[in-house]
Amino acid sequence: MIQLIQVRFLDTERLYTYFWTFYPDDGGTPLKIGDRVEVPPNWFNPEGSSGTVAALGSDYDGPNLQQIVRVIHP
């Protein structure tokens, strides 16, 4: 399944949309607000970064939607 989520970085107000793929039949779970995630490299942060899931769902339909790399477990 594919889930659209919005990530906040370093307590900023701006949210960025990513997608998360999970497979419930294989034990995968959807992301929830407050989860810490790793995002792929981009023009602003060429080494990748991490942020916090701040919202579920999005109406973003731009061409550069990227996938969450992984959940960062405590």
Rank of each mutant, 00 (worst) to 15 (best):
residue 57 G to W: 00
residue 52 T to Q: 04
residue 27 G to V: 14
residue 51 G to L: 00
residue 18 Y to W: 05
residue 40 P to A: 05
residue 43 W to R: 15
residue 52 T to W: 01
residue 50 S to K: 07
residue 47 E to I: 09
residue 57 G to R: 00
residue 36 R to K: 11
residue 48 G to E: 01
residue 25 D to W: 12
residue 18 Y to A: 05
residue 46 P to C: 10
residue 28 G to L: 06
residue 16 Y to H: 13
residue 49 S to V: 07
residue 49 S to Q: 09
residue 18 Y to H: 07
residue 60 Y to I: 10
residue 56 L to Q: 03
residue 32 K to D: 04
residue 18 Y to I: 04
residue 16 Y to D: 08
residue 32 K to C: 10
residue 23 Y to A: 12
residue 27 G to P: 09
residue 12 T to P: 03
residue 50 S to N: 09
residue 9 F to L: 15
residue 11 D to G: 14
residue 57 G to I: 00
residue 53 V to F: 01
residue 37 V to T: 07
residue 16 Y to W: 07
residue 46 P to R: 09
residue 22 F to Q: 06
residue 51 G to R: 00
residue 6 Q to C: 05
residue 30 P to V: 09
residue 55 A to V: 08
residue 36 R to H: 07
residue 10 L to H: 10
residue 42 N to H: 10
residue 45 N to P: 02
residue 52 T to G: 01
residue 5 I to Y: 01
residue 36 R to W: 04
residue 20 W to A: 02
residue 60 Y to P: 04
residue 61 D to H: 13
residue 33 I to P: 06
residue 53 V to Q: 00
residue 62 G to K: 03
residue 39 V to A: 12
residue 4 L to N: 05
residue 29 T to L: 09
residue 53 V to W: 00
residue 5 I to H: 00
residue 5 I to R: 01
residue 46 P to Y: 04
residue 45 N to I: 10
residue 14 R to P: 03
residue 60 Y to F: 15
residue 61 D to W: 06
residue 11 D to K: 15
residue 33 I to A: 14
residue 34 G to I: 04
residue 17 T to F: 02
residue 4 L to M: 06
residue 54 A to W: 02
residue 6 Q to F: 01
residue 16 Y to V: 12
residue 52 T to H: 00
residue 11 D to F: 14
residue 19 F to E: 08
residue 4 L to A: 05
residue 30 P to N: 07
residue 36 R to S: 08
residue 59 D to L: 06
residue 44 F to P: 01
residue 55 A to W: 07
residue 27 G to L: 13
residue 34 G to E: 04
residue 33 I to M: 13
residue 33 I to G: 14
residue 20 W to C: 02
residue 56 L to I: 14
residue 38 E to D: 07
residue 52 T to V: 11
residue 46 P to F: 05
residue 37 V to G: 09
residue 54 A to P: 01
residue 16 Y to C: 11
residue 62 G to Q: 02
residue 9 F to K: 14
residue 60 Y to S: 06
residue 16 Y to A: 14
residue 55 A to K: 15
